[in-house]
Design a protein around this nucleic acid. Sequence first.
DNA 1: GATGAGCGT
Length: 137
Amino acid sequence: MKNSLMRFIAGRASTIVDNPTYSSWRFYCSPTSSSTRPPPNGKLFVAGLSWSVDEKSLKDAFSFFGQVSEVRIMYDKDTGRSRGFGFVHFSKEDEARCAKDAMDGKALLGRPLRISFALEKIRGAPVVVPRLPNGNA
DNA sequence: GATGAGCGT
């Protein structure tokens, strides 16, 4: 909470970093934004990350919008550097909505963030080819 | 020593 990452998100909140009063944080999150239908999973796909952003920085940044349950950044297996995108899991879908609407398009560590709702990625499950029971291949 | 749209073991 006392990380300086907040300053990259909201530049005007530089004085609130060490203050417990977050009265200046107005993210205009519509509680009932029924205009769009987000996937009710609460998972966010965060791309456009800088290559020097790690998971704890992301979680620290997104924790202001809600309770982040999981943060995953994809790193390259060869170079070990981040691939520039990751995933943020929120406890509530409204918080994910809030974080997306608030952080999408804005810059984190100098690079503009591109947030969208994550897809339903099944772990380790390759795309199963639906075999029709007709047997005609 | 670089790069920059994207959907994950």
